[in-house]
Design a protein around this nucleic acid. Sequence first.
DNA 1: TAAACATATGAATAAATGTTCATATATAGA
DNA 2: TCTATATATGAACATTTATTCATATGTTTA
Lengths: 119, 119
Amino acid sequence: MRREIAPCCQEQQIHPEALEKVRSLLPPDERLYDLAELFKIFGDSTRLKILYALLEGELCVCDLAGLMAVTQSAVSHQLRVLKNSKLIKFRREGKTIYYSLADSHVERILSQGMEHIEE
Amino acid sequence: MRREIAPCCQEQQIHPEALEKVRSLLPPDERLYDLAELFKIFGDSTRLKILYALLEGELCVCDLAGLMAVTQSAVSHQLRVLKNSKLIKFRREGKTIYYSLADSHVERILSQGMEHIEE
DNA sequence: TAAACATATGAATAAATGTTCATATATAGA
DNA sequence: TCTATATATGAACATTTATTCATATGTTTA
């Protein structure tokens, strides 16, 4: 039989005092958005593989393409994403372009993630 | 004018020795996939906001819905995602369900990400 | 300058994902 | 048992996103 449908949380907020405190400590929306954008970058196994590969040192696009099961084009597209987020940098040497990690944050973020998984 | 198109990396791999080393140190594909899944969770500002809110302590679904600009349904869906990834846990108290962070990894992953953004 | 190679990029496509709406389920109280 | 409230869930939809294909750009060497 049908039952009445109620909108949620009619009694105002259930814990207004907790909510007030949380609200005041929360990072601004814009910052949360940027942070989400950053983690989104790490949320793809192709990009993760590239980052892990670069932990050992610089590699060129062909090396990376040879390492992964995707086309050179796909690698190149993903390198651009990583470059735009300042997670990797590059240098040119003739026809070849060498990519490497931008800083040590990448390694630390990867490790924290791995730790969580490995339990 | 048209120029000939060449497939990439014809000369075998450019740096075979580097590639060999990288290949041997790379985490297995399955693990990279799992790690990507984890970071994917952090790659959404709604979920990030929930996680940051829970840093201060437990909150019920209505509290969280009140905090965000989305429906109770959306919050509930996201809570399930977070629950499935073992990032949050919950306890029931009558009609109300209180959610809280599962462990301290969440906080550390968030901090590492923030550090990168804040430069 | 023409050919060859390394890398980048635009368009198209398929798959994944977040939100809402409608409604189901669980619990408490009358 | 009936009603009200808190939370969960399935379906539909719109948006994002990763990949491939075709081709463009940049660099070296003949």
